[in-house]
Computed example of a mutant assay.
Amino acid sequence: MTAASTSFGDRLASVFAEFGRLCVGIDPHAHLLREWGLEESGAGTREFGLRVVDAVAGRAGIVKPQVAFFERYGAAGYAALEDVLAAARAAGILVIADAKRGDIGTSVEAYGQAWLTPGSPLEADAMTIAAFQGVGSIAAPMELAEAAGKGLFVLAATSNPEAELIQRALVPVENASGRTVSRAIIDDVKEFNEAQSVHPFGSIGVVLGATLDLARYGIDTRSPAGVNPPPVLAPGFGHQGAKLSEARSIFGSYAPATIVSESRAILSSGPDKLANVVGTRAEQVRAEMGSEIG
C-alpha cells in the first residue's frame, strides 16, 4: 500500500479549524429508536444514523458510530452501518468507528483492514482499538493507519469503574518504580508517532475519559505533549457528567489535540431538534476549547 498524501493528523487539524472539536456519537440505543419513532431493527438504525449525519453535516466535523448498536441486528445492522459510514464520509465528516477491536497477529491486522482500508465496505477515517496484549500487538493496524492516512484511538484510561484496577496498575521498568498501564500505553503511542514524519498530530491517538482524575492514572497533563502529540478522544461530556467548562483543565497540555465526544445528551433532543442542538453545542465547544492546534 502506498502512503497516503494527507495524514490523519492533517485532516483532524483541518476539522478543528473549520468546525471545532465536537464529535457527535451515533448510538442507536433501543430507547432512542423508540423515542425517535423508529423500528428496533437494522432499518431503524440506518434511518437513525442517516438522520444524525444530516444533522451534523455543515455544523460539526466528526461523528463516532458505536458499532455494537448496529452489530446486534446482524447482517442487516452491518448493511445499515455501511450506508451510514459512506454517507458521513461523502458529506465530508470525519468518521471514527467505535469498534474497540483488539487481538494479535493476523487477527488484529484483519480488524485494521476491515475498518481502515480505503474502499472497504466498512471504511472509516479512524477506529477505536484495545491493546490489552500490549501496544506492540497492534503494530499492524498502527502501520496500516499511518500508511493509509487513517487514525487509531487506543484505549488508555476509560471511565468504567471496572477498568481502574488494571489501568492504574504499575508496569515494571528497568531502574525505575514503574509506570501505570495507562501511562505506558500513552508512552508507546507517543514513541510511534514521534518516529513518523511531522504532522500537526500523530495518526495514533488515545482514549481518555473526561470524568477521570487523570493524575491518578499516572498521566501528567502539565508536561508538554511532545512532538506529534497523540490525538485524544475524550468521551464523558454531557450525559456522563464531565463539564465542558473544565475541559482545558482536565486535559491540560493535551487539550489542543482533544476531541470532545458527546452522544446521548445530544441524541436525546430528538430528530426534530437535533440539527439545532448540534450547531449550538459545536459553537459552545469552539468557544471553550478554541481551534488552535498548539
Rank of each mutant, 00 (worst) to 15 (best):
S197G: 06
Y217G: 13
A255C: 07
D83W: 00
G61K: 04
A88W: 09
N228I: 07
N175V: 06
K64F: 03
P200A: 03
F237V: 03
T258H: 04
I129S: 04
V84M: 05
P121T: 05
A90C: 06
P235S: 06
R281F: 00
P256F: 06
A87S: 14
R72Y: 03
I204L: 09
L214H: 15
A225N: 14
L208V: 08
E109Y: 09
H199A: 13
A157R: 13
N193F: 06
A247D: 11
T2C: 00
A131S: 00
R281K: 14
Y254N: 01
A145F: 11
A282K: 09
P118C: 09
R101Y: 00
V52W: 12
L144H: 09
F48A: 10
A215P: 00
A287Y: 02
H29N: 09
T6W: 04
G236M: 05
Y254H: 11
L32E: 10
L233Q: 07
G226A: 05
R281Y: 08
M142S: 06
E174N: 02
G236V: 02
G105D: 04
P118M: 14
T258Y: 04
G49F: 10
A90R: 15
E146S: 14
A287G: 01
R59W: 07
A282W: 06
S177E: 15
I93V: 15
A184Y: 10
A126K: 01
R281E: 13
I62E: 00
I166Q: 14
N228V: 08
L81N: 03
N175Y: 13
Y73H: 15
R89G: 01
T117V: 09
D272Q: 14
F70M: 10
R101P: 08
G279T: 02
L244I: 07
S268D: 04
